[in-house]
């Protein structure tokens, strides 16, 4: 995909709220950017921080998490667990030099189709401004740096590359 094209957002949507809201946006024929790729989960509490890291590592420019409003989780409290993990992720991403706008958590209820549209459009604009993340490429560059700094690590890095 050429550089100037659309950013890619990997979206994890809770089945009961945001996924349904996105369906509603469709039924209502709202229009938004074709930048999101939705992975459906039953609850935002299912979202393992690893999913988010993996999405970035595999080339997503942004990750969007959509869950039920506080107090409205279909499974009572999964969204509070999601909130905690989101906080943790924010810190980790900051440490990795990934801009905070690239990870967004939104509570969107089943009736808020327009929020899906707004959030995806806003995020698309933010990501366009930030430019591609290119984490996979950066990872390679970091490996090169590591080898330069610490030639002894070359072997270990090479081994890992084989495994990845």
């Amino acid at each position: 995909m050429p550089e100037d094209t659309q950013p890619r957002i990997l979206a994890f949507f809770c089945n009961w709220c945001t996924y349904t809201a996105a369906d509603l946006a469709g039924v209502s024929r709202m229009k938004y950017a074709a930048t999101s790729r939705v992975v459906r989960v039953m609850c935002s509490g299912r979202i393992d921080p690893q999913f988010v890291l993996s999405a970035f590592a595999k080339g997503a420019d942004g990750v969007l998490i959509g869950g039920c409003h506080p107090g409205d989780c279909h499974y009572i409290s999964g969204n509070t667990k999601c909130l905690r993990r989101h906080r943790l992720l924010k810190r980790m991403l900051a440490d990795m030099g990934i801009e905070p706008e690239r990870l967004r958590l939104e509570w969107i209820s089943a009736s808020e189709g327009d929020r899906v549209k707004t959030v995806i459009n806003e995020m698309t604009a933010d990501l366009k401004r930030l430019g591609p993340l290119k984490l996979p490429e950066r990872c390679v560059a970091w490996d090169v740096e590591a080898i330069d700094e610490e030639p002894d690590h070359a072997e270990a890095v090479a081994k890992e590359a084989v495994h990845a």
Binding site: M42, R46, F51
Partner: peptide, 28 residues
């Protein structure tokens, strides 16, 4: 809900239809 699956530090819990390997593969 899958809350426990996401939390298990040993990756010992599997949620049918939302297995880790299914979701990781989908992401990738």
């Amino acid at each position: 809900c899958g809350v426990c699956v996401a939390a298990c530090p040993s990756g010992a819990i599997t949620q049918n239809l939302f297995e880790d390997r299914e979701i990781f593969e989908e992401i990738e």
